[in-house]
Simulated assay, not measured.
Amino acid sequence: MPGDPFALRELLGPDAALCRRAITGEHGVSLPPFTDHHVHLHLIDERALAPGGIAAVLDLGGDPVALAQRPADAIPRVAYAGAFLTAPGGYPAGRPWAPPQIVREITDASTHPGVPGGAATAVDEQASFGASVIKIALNSTTGPIPDADALAAIVATARERGLPVVAHAEGEGMPQLAAEAGADAFAHTPFSGYVGRAFIAHAVAAGQVWISTLAIPDDPDAAESARVNLAGFAAAGGRVLYGTDLGNGDRPVGVIAEEVTALDRAGVRGAALIAAMADPWPAAAPPSGVTTFVPGDPPTHLDEVAEWLRGATVVPSEELIHDEC
């Protein structure tokens, strides 16, 4: 098979390797297992994730009881936030796709456990069902958002439980509000206007992670704002995670070519693109025993990488024979 292993690593990162499948003899490239950092499993057929190239997911809004009942060692490996935490009547309460089981409306800013409708109560519930992160809904475009006291209580309680806070920040000033409250991650790259260099510098210094979802906004202005914001964040050294908001709209399950292409256009290219897709956050390590495999000849130029990744699938690591010394 054509391909220089050293050039391949320069293009796709240090873990890229030429290989073949032992059973079929099919040649291709092995990469670390990919994670989609923004999915909603109750809205998709997850059986297609691994064949489509996704070995792990972060569910950012689902029923904590159902999620806690999943086998821990299955592929795709699933980390989750559990329910959205929101204001009474706030996003996404009442949406057809958001049953009551996936929403907790915070009516009391109490940091004491067991208070009905309390901020700490909601965080503790998600933690008790095995949540790896806590998700806050800050969408001022469609309804109320948690007030300052409730927001502070949610973040403080999550900190005490050792759980990162992921913010859905939508609407004027919402990314700034989330950042000031201490959010560790954005569920979507900020798209409600340009955030500016000072905001980006603060986000990078604070160690924030931004989940891409660049292919989601329908509005061209919002899509361009997200692209420019992510390009600035990535260029400044920010930690970018591949995420698609899978379940939002009718799209194929697996690697989403439009998202990969959008990341590439935002300057997250080549090895940086693979790193964003293979980052195991919030887990400390990627799923064991599986590998991303892309059949056929490897790309030879950065412009080819995004389209080439359409062919990605997940295979057992033991099935691959590396063709390099």
Rank of each mutant, 00 (worst) to 15 (best):
T292N: 12
E105D: 04
S317E: 15
D303Y: 07
D323L: 15
I274C: 04
G28T: 11
A22G: 14
A257T: 15
A257L: 15
R70C: 01
L177Q: 14
P220T: 01
A185N: 01
V123C: 03
R227Q: 15
G25M: 14
I321M: 12
A178H: 11
P5D: 06
A306Q: 08
R239K: 13
E172K: 13
T300R: 14
G207D: 05
P299N: 12
V29M: 11
S132T: 14
G130Y: 08
E224N: 13
F129Q: 03
H37E: 08
D59W: 00
G162W: 00
G114L: 08
R9A: 09
E259C: 07
W281E: 11
F199A: 11
G249K: 01
G238P: 07
F129L: 03
I256W: 08
G52T: 07
V133P: 07
A153G: 00
Y194S: 05
G94C: 09
P287K: 10
T300L: 12
H202C: 02
D218W: 03
P92I: 03
A120D: 04
G89I: 04
A222T: 00
W97C: 03
G254C: 08
I102K: 02
E224T: 12
H168D: 09
L43D: 10
A66P: 02
P190W: 04
T111K: 12
G171A: 13
G25C: 12
R197A: 15
P96Y: 01
H37T: 13
T107Y: 01
R20L: 12
V78T: 12
G25Q: 11
H112G: 06
D297S: 14
A185L: 01
I145N: 04
I200F: 02
I134V: 15
E160P: 03
G232Q: 11
L246K: 09
F191N: 08
G207Y: 03
G254I: 10
S317Y: 05
A278R: 10
I145L: 09
R227K: 14
E258L: 10
A205W: 05
L12G: 07
P252K: 03
A206W: 05
R251S: 02
A222C: 07
A50M: 02
T121I: 00
G25F: 12
Y242D: 11
V166E: 04
T189N: 10
A122D: 00
R21Q: 14
A152R: 04
P252S: 03
G53M: 07
P316G: 12
T141D: 09
L263M: 15
V294L: 10
H27E: 15
D59F: 00
S192E: 10
D264N: 13
Q208A: 12
D303W: 07
F6Y: 05
A137L: 08
A131P: 14
A198D: 15
A178I: 11
P88T: 03
A68H: 06
V268S: 06
D279V: 01
P32G: 05
L43G: 10
A276I: 07
D124N: 10
F186H: 08
A231K: 11
A79V: 00
S288K: 14
E319C: 08
E46F: 04
Q208F: 00
E304G: 07
P146V: 08
G232I: 02
D250P: 02
D15E: 15
A215F: 00
P252V: 02
A206D: 15
R269Q: 15
P298H: 08
E172H: 13
